[in-house]
Simulated assay, not measured.
Amino acid sequence: MGMISEFKEFISRGNVVDLAVGVVIGAAFGKIVTALVDGIVMPVVGFISGGVSVSDWKYVLRPAQLDAAGKEVAAEVALKYGLFIQTAIDFLLIALVIFVVLKAYNKVRTPAPAPATPEDVLLLREIRDSLKKPA
């Protein structure tokens, strides 16, 4: 079997196509939730906390050093924890929405029908039941 025919067989399997669709939809969904967090949730949190953007929250370890002309000589050293908080909220919202969607999907999904009992098993059950009957 040639490499091209093996590749066609690999690609034509449902799992690969399903995985590709899931990755593309997941990436698009991540962008939607990120836009929600950046455009709606974080401005509200920033407004409540005094008008400063959450992504700008930081703890300055060493302030920037300026020369006599006011030009920056050494950049500030800061722990930017606000960006971490914003990314964590983004992740939690994505995880929450995925959880809710999967929960709804599992509720709607119909269970697979039970497989039919093989004929030989049915025959063996009949023999067993007939042997149990008193003569």
Rank of each mutant, 00 (worst) to 15 (best):
I32H: 03
I32P: 00
L36A: 11
L36H: 03
D38R: 11
G39A: 06
G39L: 04
V41K: 01
M42G: 03
P43N: 08
P43H: 02
V44D: 04
G46E: 04
S49C: 13
G51E: 06
G51W: 02
G51F: 01
S53F: 08
S53Q: 12
V54P: 07
S55G: 04
D56M: 09
W57G: 00
K58R: 15
K58T: 03
K58V: 00
V60S: 00
P63T: 01
Q65V: 14
Q65K: 13
Q65R: 14
L66M: 11
L66E: 05
D67E: 07
A68K: 13
A69D: 15
G70K: 10
G70E: 03
K71M: 13
K71I: 12
K71R: 13
V73Y: 03
A74F: 14
E76F: 07
V77K: 09
V77F: 09
A78N: 06
L79V: 15
Y81D: 03
L83P: 01
Q86L: 01
I89R: 03
F91W: 10
L92E: 07
L93H: 01
L93Y: 07
I94Q: 13
L96Q: 08
L96P: 05
V97C: 07
V97N: 01
V97A: 13
V97I: 15
I98T: 08
V101K: 00
L102N: 15
Y105S: 11
R109H: 11
R109G: 03
T110H: 09
P111K: 14
A112F: 11
P113D: 07
P118K: 07
P118D: 08
P118S: 10
E119K: 13
E119I: 11
D120F: 10
V121N: 04
L122C: 06
